[in-house]
Amino acid sequence: MAGETQASIGYGSFFHISEDNGATWTEIAEVNTITPPNDKLDQIDATHMQSPNRTREFIPGLIDPGEAPFEMNFVPGSPSDLKISALKIAGTRVKCRVTFPNAVTWVFSAWVSGYEPAVPTDDKMTATVTWKVTGSTVSTPAAAPANTVLPAVSGLAKVGETLTAWEGTWTGSPSFAYQWKAGAANIAGATDKTYVPVAGDVGKAITVSVTGSNAAGTATAASVATADVVA
């Protein structure tokens, strides 16, 4: 429908860091609020003795890339806790990558300038991690999804038993659609995450095709077949 909103919530976003200039990336776990870099333009006061009407004059200066804080669930001794603590102590500059739910990414260089855990009596422990950004942020358009680990089916291939699809592992933060098959044929109407075999499926192996979609495109991957369905 024309004019329909494209807004989305932030659920599904990721924060990764790379210590080898983007060759490999490590996810920071259990991040719940991200504030991406927010560039600010310096304002240079260029007022002089003859400024018209005794009014200050300004010219644009350099761009300050600012900071990029995020909040996460604080788990003492976890890999994320240890990694952030080590980066703060070392003052190491790393690449950071924010991946939004539509798979657009922002990549920037930064170092940990603050790490502040909070340990309340009657609420979850959290930590605020502040990154000092250096240089410009590069925005990369969404790439079509790609499957990296094939989907799979769990459950007993038997009439009346529930089979459940696991989507596999994908790049591109896609949403998923399902199509179950008995043998080589699609099962009409079987497009949910689960499927319950019927008598007509006896003697046939069951598979599920998973289609991942995002703003840039779609891709489909099929699971390994189950054993033949039994009555």
Rank of each mutant, 00 (worst) to 15 (best):
G3K: 00
T5K: 07
Q6G: 14
G10L: 06
G10R: 13
E19S: 14
N21Q: 12
T26K: 13
A29N: 13
T33D: 11
I34D: 00
A46P: 09
H48T: 11
M49K: 13
Q50M: 15
P52R: 10
R54K: 15
T55G: 10
E71M: 10
E71Q: 12
V75G: 02
G77L: 03
D81L: 06
L82N: 13
K83F: 02
A90F: 09
A90R: 14
A90G: 11
G91T: 06
G91W: 00
T92M: 10
R97S: 01
V98A: 05
T99H: 05
N102K: 05
V104P: 05
V112M: 05
G114H: 08
G114A: 13
Y115R: 00
E116R: 09
P117Y: 01
P120G: 02
D122H: 10
D123P: 07
K124P: 05
K124S: 13
T126S: 09
T126A: 04
T128W: 01
V138M: 12
A143G: 10
N147A: 09
T148I: 15
G155W: 08
L156E: 15
A157N: 11
V159P: 01
T162P: 04
L163G: 03
T169M: 13
G172Q: 07
S173P: 07
P174F: 03
S175T: 15
Y178Q: 00
W180E: 06
K181D: 05
A190P: 00
K193L: 11
Y195N: 05
V202C: 00
S209W: 04
A216C: 07
A216I: 01
T220L: 07
A221Q: 06
S223A: 06
A225C: 04
A227K: 12
D228E: 15
D228T: 15
